[in-house]
Simulated scan of single mutants.
Amino acid sequence: MPEIVELAERPYVALRGTVQLDQISAFADRMHEVIRWLVAREIAPNDAPFFKYDVVDMEAGLVLEIGFPVDDLHAGEGEIVTGVLPAGRYATVSHHGHPDGLMDATRDLLAWGEAEGVEWDADGDKWVSRLEIYLSDPREVPNMADWDTELQFKLK
């Protein structure tokens, strides 16, 4: 069952791109580029990796960032971007299972929000902060059917 939580702001480093729905896994495979960038600058992530959906437009493509929260704001370069996940109230829900199930989990969270009358911090297809937090380390949990993921969608 979703819940509403208050979260502090979180600086992050990510790779940004525009992808079609069927290209998300290929884009996710580029997470190593973010890791290499962080290692080269001796910057340690302070929490689990995430996908941040900035624009969700099924026809034109998704503007997506994959990255990690870090302790301090840094300057990006090239496709590596930096920013701050804003503080505020977020609707959250946990998903246990293969990431293929996240589309249904997202649909259910959006339907819950509509039924509860919550107002998402979004302007049409553009979201302020719509996250999938990947809590399972693939090195420790190789079976994706056993992964834990948390959705965090910012509220106005």
Rank of each mutant, 00 (worst) to 15 (best):
E3K: 15
L7K: 10
L7P: 06
R10N: 03
R10W: 10
P11Y: 03
P11T: 06
A14Q: 05
A14I: 08
G17R: 06
Q20F: 07
D22R: 10
D22F: 12
D22P: 01
Q23N: 11
Q23A: 12
I24Y: 05
I24V: 15
S25K: 10
S25L: 14
R30I: 08
H32N: 10
H32F: 07
V34T: 04
I35Y: 04
I35V: 14
R36H: 14
R36L: 11
R36P: 06
V39K: 15
I43A: 05
P45N: 08
D47V: 06
D47R: 04
P49S: 03
P49V: 02
F50N: 09
F51G: 12
K52M: 03
Y53P: 01
V55Y: 02
E59K: 14
V63C: 04
V63F: 04
L64R: 00
L64E: 03
L64K: 02
E65V: 03
E65Y: 00
E65S: 05
I66L: 09
I66D: 01
G67D: 08
P69R: 03
P69W: 01
P69D: 01
V70G: 04
V70M: 08
D72V: 07
D72M: 07
L73A: 10
L73M: 01
L73G: 09
A75L: 02
E77D: 12
I80A: 01
T82E: 05
G83I: 02
V84D: 09
L85D: 04
A91Y: 07
A91V: 15
V93H: 08
V93F: 00
V93R: 09
S94C: 03
H98Y: 13
H98N: 15
G101F: 04
M103R: 14
M103D: 13
T106F: 06
T106L: 05
R107Y: 13
L109P: 01
A111E: 15
W112Y: 12
E114Y: 06
E116M: 09
G117I: 10
V118M: 12
V118G: 09
W120F: 11
W120V: 14
W120K: 11
A122N: 15
K126G: 00
W127G: 00
S129R: 08
R130D: 12
R130L: 09
E132I: 08
I133V: 15
I133S: 02
Y134T: 09
Y134D: 07
L135F: 05
L135K: 10
D137G: 01
P138E: 09
R139E: 15
R139F: 07
E140N: 13
E140H: 11
E140Q: 15
P142F: 09
P142T: 13
N143G: 14
M144Y: 07
A145Y: 00
D146I: 08
D146M: 09
D146W: 00
T149N: 14
E150A: 02
E150T: 14
K154P: 05
